[in-house]
Design a protein around this nucleic acid. Structure first.
Lengths: 128, 128
DNA sequence: ATGATAGTTAAGTGACTGCTTTAGTATTGC
DNA sequence: GCAATACTAAAGCAGTCACTTAACTATCAT
């Protein structure tokens, strides 16, 4: 049994969708303007059906929404999708920057100890 | 023949790596502190080998680096990996915000026109 | 030296991905 | 109406992915 994908979490689907260069390209173009499936497909050497399948993944992931009017399905960017990615990464960054801060404190403290230990110090480092 | 993956672009690998909840969890914990493979594996019900394979993907994607000392391999976060994601999303955001700006201009212009032609014209159209 | 620890290598399995081809169904333009 | 357009549905296939089990290899501790 595979651990993913029967009921993948939203973030799983977003990242998975973005892992394919064709889909990333579609998201890039949809950031500029909404496009029909055919327009979306035009630059790619693959079949329209293949593009449809990419669009389905993009919709399932919440990166793209689409609406059908007449025989044309128009796809547009769902900004919320990319915002989720943005937020997840921002959380990680917050964590690792906190860690680097602590490291900075440690180095500062060590330096202070060095100064008080020797008669002279060598390298002023790090802000806080 | 599949179109991806013989020589996947770096972003492909980063997003693919992050598409798995276990790997995202590892990245989260490595944001806090560096960990050995065993420590990394501890919270998961899967085998150590499975975790090793995840670590390999994380390394291949550039999200994590690791160094072996004695019999212990210590993994740490490679900040540059997440920064790539951050940058890609930021580019998309820049594009879509430009589009919304243009839309804003258009709506403003339309409103201005509406005001100047109040109680006369039916549908003002077209941009800028 | 011996056993426990920490990791590595390899092979196999089932699900899923990215594509294809084939065969449709609605809509639209003339 | 009728053909082109735009998409949809379904099935099949090679290649990956996420595991597993089994069999090692190096350290480290005693």
């Amino acid at each position: 049994m595979s651990a993913q994908s029967v009921h993948a979490a939203p973030l799983d689907l977003v990242f998975l969708a973005l892992a394919d260069p064709a889909r990333r390209g579609m998201v890039e173009r949809l950031s500029r303007e909404s496009l029909s499936v055919s327009e979306l497909a035009a630059p790619y050497p693959m079949s329209l059906q293949a593009v449809m399948q990419h669009v389905q993944m993009l919709e399932a992931s919440g990166l793209v929404r689409s609406e059908k009017v007449g025989r044309v399905r128009t796809c547009s960017l769902e900004e919320a999708g990319l915002r989720k990615v943005e937020q997840w990464v921002a959380s990680r960054r917050a964590t690792w920057e906190k860690r680097l801060d602590r490291l900075g404190d440690f180095l500062l403290a060590e330096e202070a100890h060095e100064i008080s230990t020797r008669e002279k110090s060598r390298k002023p480092r790090r802000k806080r």
